[in-house]
Structures are given as C-alpha cells and as structure tokens.
C-alpha cells in the first residue's frame, strides 16, 4: 500500500510538488541564480522528478522502494547529468545533496494530508521507504561529485608533474633536464622516469641535469640525483649534473654526500661545452673576430 500512496501523490500533484520542492530549495538557500537561470533549474528539477516518479510507479506492484532495483537506472542517469552540469558551474557537494533531500518534506506533508490512516502504520512505512530511497539517491549524488573532483585532481596532478619536469633536446644526442623549485620524492621519481625515457625517445648519449633552479639540496635530493645518474649510466648514456652553486656545493660536502663518479659542472654552459667535446662536435662562430 505505502508505495501506491506515494505514486498517487507524485502522479496527481506534480505541479504542486515541483513548486514545493522549488520553495524548500529556496528556503535552504539552494537556488543559485548566479549559476542558473530559473528555467534551467526548473527543467532539471522536472527531469529528476519525472524519473523518480517513473521509478515509483514501477515499484507499486512490489510495494517496495528498493534503491538497488533496476527501475531507478533512468533516475540515476538523469541525476548524473544534473550533477555534472551543476558541479561544473560551481555547485558544492553539500548543496547537491541538500537539493535532492529537499524533496522529502513537501512529499511527507502531502502524505500526511492525503492518507487517511488511523493508526499511522501505513504512513510511517511510506515515510520510511521514501526516506531510504531519497537518502540513497543523495548519497549517489555525493559519490558522483566526489569522483568528478577526484578525476580533476588526478588530471591536474599529472599536468603539474609534466610541467614541473620537462626534458629539452639541446642538440643531437644531448638532452637537458632543468629542475626548478623543490624536489620531493614523488617529483624525483617523475624526473627520473622522464629522463630515462628521453634517452630512448631522443637517442640521447648525454643527459645534463641542471639544478640551477633548485632551492635546496638535502641528503634526500642528493640521493635522488645520484640514483638518476646511476640509472642513466645503466642505460648506456652519461649524466652530467650542472648548476651546482657554491652554497649547494658547500652543503653537499657538509652532508657528506658522495657524488662518486658522477660528473658535475658549475653551469649548464660548462656542461654543454663538455658534452660537445665528448661527442666531437664543434660549434663555430661566424662573426669575424
């Protein structure tokens, strides 16, 4: 019985409930006129309402609003559309959930006035079932919002990583990796990965890792540099670390970092000159001296 009541209300009083849903949203400050026109908001609300109504209708026979049933697929799809559209425009996760929940009270109100139920059993059952359904729907919206955001964060992270560790082809068989800022272990991993794949892609024999823009070199950063150089050598290329400022040289010695057999040069320019010499390349100035 309870589901039939809900179905009848949703079916007969569409206009009234839509309006009430709208005003609950307004009361809770959920109508974002800055982000939506009234017509858009209205279309979205109607779309969700009709999908919900359809699901309830399909559930009349079993008299059970099972949130996991197939009859809600349409509504989930509609909700996914609305959620994406709204979050894209800056509606928060909490606002999205509250927007869905706002349908509860007008419907309860209508149930109370239309169902003639002396002991309240049917009414409570109806409220129970509808609450469970709407709660699960609002949870679904929340999940959608969060997964959209996770996707954005992951994409941005990847972009940032790529921006932060470019590999530049300086000359035939010479690539440079200019490092800027701080080098945490995740970025150091990324740098090593990009550097090593550049050896394959650009057929590089010499890799110049320039740390002019690196703010501080602690033991960990030094370790990363040494490891990168070791991996470069394993692949059959050679690493030169350039841009070691006097201050960094001092700290590295104080930290007792053993750079071992790694070639280091004070500037990128010196490193490049070195690389040219090793590859037997001459760069001649045509300007008459």
């Amino acid at each position: 019985m309870p589901v039939r009541y809900i179905h009848v209300i949703l079916d007969n009083e569409r206009e009234l409930l839509l309006k009430a849903w709208g005003s609950t949203q307004a009361e809770e400050g959920l109508i974002r006129r800055d982000l939506f026109t009234e017509r858009e908001a209205r279309t979205q609300t109607e779309m969700l309402y009709d999908a919900l109504s359809k699901g309830v209708k399909a559930s009349v026979e079993t008299d059970l609003l099972d949130p996991d049933a197939e009859c809600w697929d349409d509504m989930r799809a509609a909700l996914a559309d609305v959620t994406r559209e709204r979050t894209k425009r800056g509606v928060s996760t909490a606002e999205m959930a509250a927007f869905v929940l706002a349908l509860k009270y007008p419907l309860f109100e209508r149930l109370r006035t239309t169902v003639d139920d002396s002991n309240g059993k049917v009414l409570i059952d109806a409220v129970n079932q509808f609450t469970r359904l709407i709660d699960s729907v609002s949870l679904y919206t929340t999940e959608l919002c969060i997964s959209e955001r996770d996707k954005t964060i992951r994409r941005q992270q990847e972009e940032m990583m790529e921006l932060a560790s470019p590999v530049v082809e300086l000359w035939d068989r010479i690539v440079a990796v200019p490092l800027v800022g701080t080098l945490d272990s995740m970025r150091a991993q990324e740098v090593m990965e990009n550097t090593l794949s550049a050896i394959v892609d650009k057929k590089a024999d010499i890799v110049i890792i320039d740390i002019t823009g690196v703010l501080t070199v602690d033991t960990q950063v030094a370790q990363h540099l040494i490891r990168t150089a070791a991996a470069v050598r394993l692949m059959g290329a050679e690493a030169i670390i350039s841009g070691i400022s006097p201050r960094i040289a001092q700290t590295m010695v104080q930290l007792g970092v053993d750079t071992g057999e790694i070639r280091t040069r004070s500037s990128l320019r010196m490193a490049l000159a070195d690389a040219f010499r090793q590859l037997d390349t001459d760069v001649i100035s045509r300007i008459a001296k």
């Binding site: 090593m192 090593l196 394959v200 070791a230 991996a231 394993l234 692949m235």
Partner: peptide
C-alpha cells in the same frame, strides 16, 4: 639495451 623501467628498478 636496458629499458628505462628496468634501470630505475635496479637502482
């Protein structure tokens, strides 16, 4: 011919 991922892992 050592692959990049292999070099990284070995290090």
């Amino acid at each position: 011919g050592m692959r990049p991922a292999v070099a990284m892992t070995l290090v």
